[in-house]
């Protein structure tokens, strides 16, 4: 049995280039959430030359909009949303230093090319297992776009958050079709 690779963001080029499609990974450290609207705003900020709400270099972005936390809890259910909706924004973020995206499902050719060129990966978490995955999140703080509610950018601290490498930086994918 291979030992499961551990990822500790911020990630560097060597971390990324060693990952292969189909490998299981466990993420420990700080990751950031962003869905559709947050991606749109991040890209608008890049175009306007504004400072981003978090350091993108080496970062992992989790495509997540959680349920509200119950009193005394860190977060609610916290599983991945469909990654392809972020396809039109991801290449710009990858070019600006993003190293890994965490979601579910397929990416288009533009994203794959950007991942190859700049060295980035797409990780897939277990869709529809928001209760199970939330157990790996130990802190959560909204750091930007609070008006977006569940779609706001959150800084999460995760421990051994499980995922598989769905697309690696050589353009290989775990998915048989598409």
């Amino acid at each position: 049995m291979n030992t499961i690779k551990k990822l500790h963001p911020p990630l560097n080029e060597t971390d990324i280039r060693s990952l292969r499609a189909g490998e299981e990974v466990l993420i420990t450290g700080i990751i950031y959430t962003a869905r559709d609207m947050a991606h749109k705003r991040l890209c608008e900020s890049i175009e306007a030359g504004e400072k981003l709400p978090f350091e993108l270099t080496g970062a992992i972005i989790y495509f997540l909009g959680p349920t509200p936390a119950r009193p005394g809890r860190v977060i609610g259910a916290a599983g991945p949303t469909t990654s392809s909706r972020m396809d039109k924004f991801s290449p710009k973020l990858i070019a600006a230093g993003l190293k890994a995206m965490l979601g579910k499902g397929y990416r288009n050719q533009q994203v794959i090319e950007a991942m190859k060129k700049y060295g980035a990966v797409h990780l897939s978490a277990l869709g529809g297992a928001g209760a199970l995955l939330s157990k790996h999140i130990v802190s959560s703080e909204i750091i930007a776009y609070e008006d977006l509610g569940t779609e706001a950018i959150r800084k999460l601290e995760v421990i051994d958050f499980p995922a598989i490498v769905a697309y690696d930086s050589a353009g290989q994918t775990v998915y048989k079709e598409k």
């Binding site: 259910a77 297992a129 209760a131």
Partner: peptide
């Protein structure tokens, strides 16, 4: 894992899915 997710959701009152 999906069976485990359903158990955690019911026992710990965490929604099955964030959506």
């Amino acid at each position: 894992q999906l069976i485990e997710n359903a158990r955690i959701a019911a026992d710990e009152k965490i929604p099955l899915c964030q959506d």
